[in-house]
Amino acid sequence: MILFDDVSYSYSPGRYALEHINLNIGEAELAAILGENGAGKTTLVKHINGLLKPQSGKVTVSGIDTKDSTVATLARKVGLVFQNPDHQLFAETVEKELAFALVNFGLPPDEVSRRVDWAMKEFELTQYRERPPFMLSGGERKRLALASVLCYDPQILILDEPTTGQDSRQKTRLAALLKRINGEGKTVLVVTHDMEFVADFIPKVVLLSKGRVLAEGPAEEILTNRELLMSASLLPPQLAELSWDLALQRPTIDLEQVVLVASKLVGGPQR
């Protein structure tokens, strides 16, 4: 579905943001693009909707070479939700904000209002229909930004650092939403450095560091690999740390597993 073929990109001569990236993301995958700040995560995903074109190599999305396509065309298939909702909210009303992308894509008016209504209900924004977006609270604005992208039902959804400033309950809700969207057959990519969120909710990880892909695979494997995480300048998730501190034979990020093993160590039957 998304293919990176030996892609390299640099913002300024001599300093590479992406080096020889090879990546194959299939349909209906739910994966995290994980890495420290400056690893190249945002640069990578900007190649998927064509905002950036590779300086060498090729990026193919659903069979289309991104070099042969405009951002507007790719955006129809690839929804990119930016980290800061305030970088996109501009309309006079929430309704118009939600309709923005739909109108840009040339959808007929009745289709537009159908989808806008759907989005408002789905994201609990109906009572704000006539309100200007900037009057909503921080969390509501984040919801609105996400809603305005999901509104046009892209096949691929990418979220850039969606968990910053979110409390644990909001993160759980977000994870449930992402799982549901993924369950409908969409590819969902989460760009993040939030190890806990990935450990708790995302099954697959693409690990980036200094512009290169260090590893790609199940979260359970990658997030319990101490050397790998250290070379990526990342802190391991808490349960991985706990696994090591308890000298578990098979370190894990699964809470139930840890409890099971720990209770055996503590001795006797569990409560």
């Binding site: 644990s168 309950r169 909001q170 806990e196 808490q238 706990l242 409890v259 569990q270 409560r271």
Partner: peptide, 18 residues
């Protein structure tokens, strides 16, 4: 019951009723 990120160590300890 609140949306607070309780440390995993605490969650495990609670489950073990330490």
């Amino acid at each position: 019951r609140m949306g607070i990120g309780i440390p995993k160590a605490v969650q495990v300890a609670k489950r073990l009723a330490l």
